[in-house]
Simulated assay, not measured.
Amino acid sequence: MPSLEQEEIALLRQRVVRLEAQVEFLYRHLNVTFEADRRAGDDPQVIEALKSRTLIEAIQIYRKNKGGSLAEAKDAVEDMQRRLGL
């Protein structure tokens, strides 16, 4: 007979599986993907440009939205591109 602790662990595992399935459903329903290395300061427009356009356009969008020099924008966008695997 399993101990109380083992029963609690089994219930928690079932709950995690159910929650993961719910999150997966929501991602599909909303047509979004989870990006583990995304940071709070990452500009969604820049990420979209990296996914669907060119690096140059992403840098232009970054500069328009955040300012800074061309070199700073290029470094920031390339860092984002590496982190997110784009």
Rank of each mutant, 00 (worst) to 15 (best):
M1E: 12
M1Y: 11
P2S: 03
L4K: 14
L4F: 12
E5N: 06
Q6T: 03
E7W: 05
E7V: 09
E8C: 05
E8W: 03
E8N: 10
I9K: 10
L11V: 09
L11P: 00
L11I: 09
L11M: 11
L12C: 00
L12R: 06
R13L: 14
Q14Y: 06
Q14C: 06
Q14H: 11
R15H: 10
V17A: 15
L19K: 07
E20W: 00
E20V: 05
A21P: 04
A21E: 15
V23N: 06
E24W: 00
F25S: 11
F25D: 13
L26S: 07
L26W: 14
Y27M: 13
Y27E: 14
R28W: 07
H29L: 15
H29I: 05
H29T: 14
L30R: 08
N31R: 11
N31P: 01
F34A: 08
E35A: 14
E35K: 09
A36E: 15
D37K: 11
R38T: 10
R38G: 13
R39P: 04
A40L: 12
G41Q: 13
D42M: 11
D42F: 11
D42E: 12
D43W: 02
D43H: 04
D43I: 06
D43C: 11
P44Y: 05
Q45Y: 05
Q45A: 14
Q45G: 03
V46E: 06
V46R: 01
E48P: 00
A49S: 08
K51Q: 13
T54Y: 05
T54I: 02
T54A: 04
T54L: 03
L55N: 04
I56Y: 08
I56K: 15
I56P: 02
E57P: 00
A58D: 09
A58V: 07
A58K: 07
A58E: 09
I59V: 15
I61F: 10
Y62C: 06
Y62K: 01
R63W: 02
K64M: 05
N65G: 04
N65M: 11
N65C: 08
K66R: 15
K66F: 04
G67Q: 03
G67R: 03
G68L: 10
L70S: 09
L70Y: 14
A71E: 15
E72L: 07
E72C: 01
E72Q: 14
E72H: 08
E72V: 05
A76Q: 07
A76D: 04
A76V: 02
V77H: 03
V77P: 07
V77N: 08
V77L: 07
E78D: 03
E78T: 10
E78F: 01
D79G: 12
D79V: 02
Q81R: 15
Q81C: 09
Q81L: 05
R83V: 06
R83P: 04
L86E: 06
